[in-house]
Design a protein around this nucleic acid. Structure first.
Lengths: 152, 152
DNA sequence: TATGAAAGACCTAGACT
DNA sequence: AGTCTAGGTCTTTCATA
């Protein structure tokens, strides 16, 4: 990965769904060269995919919550992690260091749906011993972007 | 937003950087009609953007952490939220209900960078009274996807 | 690895339904 | 809102440097 690759990624991070030639023009290269580089970045796993960012409010997912889920037996983490990951409303599942717990981020319609998930999909998992829910009232920033420093 | 729009969004959520005609073929419509719909979805704010998902490990951002930041004076939230959002390594900033605190998600290279951020960018903010850091050891799921139910 | 050429695919505006 | 058409643009492979 050289500076040109970083430039390409920086452009795609701003707007992934643009023509190849536009990327090529921006960095002053032939489209075929840019295509080859992007393909290599995809093949090597640097680029993991291209996503649309949708407005959650318009899909009954206005409410963001984080839940810390404490588990009685750490051996069960993989199964529980997968079970939580399988819930549509759950966007993230992380295994946290030092406290025998998982952190999940989810988006639901409202309190009612949150309660329902807690009761029927989370607290009813055998090994789950407790949960601690934090609800977000507003969001200042939410992005998967990684700052790319070309000079490095 | 009708079922056709939902179908289009479902396709774009799988892979945003695909030709318009391919979307059109998949749902059995003329490309121009699909183009028009996508433009409307963009204009109305349903589609907020198109992102590349990069492999964080390859950009010195292997470590994920969540920090709860307690603030002495709730009046200061907007400024602190913006200050935190301005940090490159910070991917999310949420204002939490009920505990006078902010939740941030960040990606850093290692413990050293995390410590440096805590000392020089977070704890040195006047109104910040305490922080509670949780480090993710592994991640089961991490996505901004919203499940789209076509039948609805 | 880059360019340039060329064939084929795609985009998109506009006429029309 | 959709289809169809058509010119212009973009993609992608390949020969070449």
């Amino acid at each position: 990965m050289d500076k040109i690759d970083l430039q390409i990624l920086q452009i795609l991070q701003k707007k992934a769904r643009i023509p190849n030639v536009e990327v090529a023009r921006t960095i002053g290269m032939a489209p075929s060269a840019v295509l080859e580089r992007i393909k290599k970045l995809e093949a090597s796993g640097v680029i993991q995919g291209y996503e649309v960012r949708l407005n959650a409010d318009m899909f009954h997912r206005a409410m963001v919550a984080f839940i810390e889920i404490t588990v009685s037996d750490p051996v069960d983490f993989p199964e529980i992690g997968d079970a939580l990951a399988a819930i549509d409303q759950v966007q993230e599942v992380h295994y946290l260091a030092g406290q025998d717990c998982l952190m999940i981020k989810l988006r639901v319609k409202d309190n009612r749906e949150l309660e329902s998930l807690l009761l029927t999909r989370i607290n009813n998992i055998q090994a789950v011993s407790s949960t601690r829910t934090r609800i977000a009232l507003s969001t200042f920033k939410e992005s998967a972007k990684i700052a790319i420093d070309i000079t490095s």
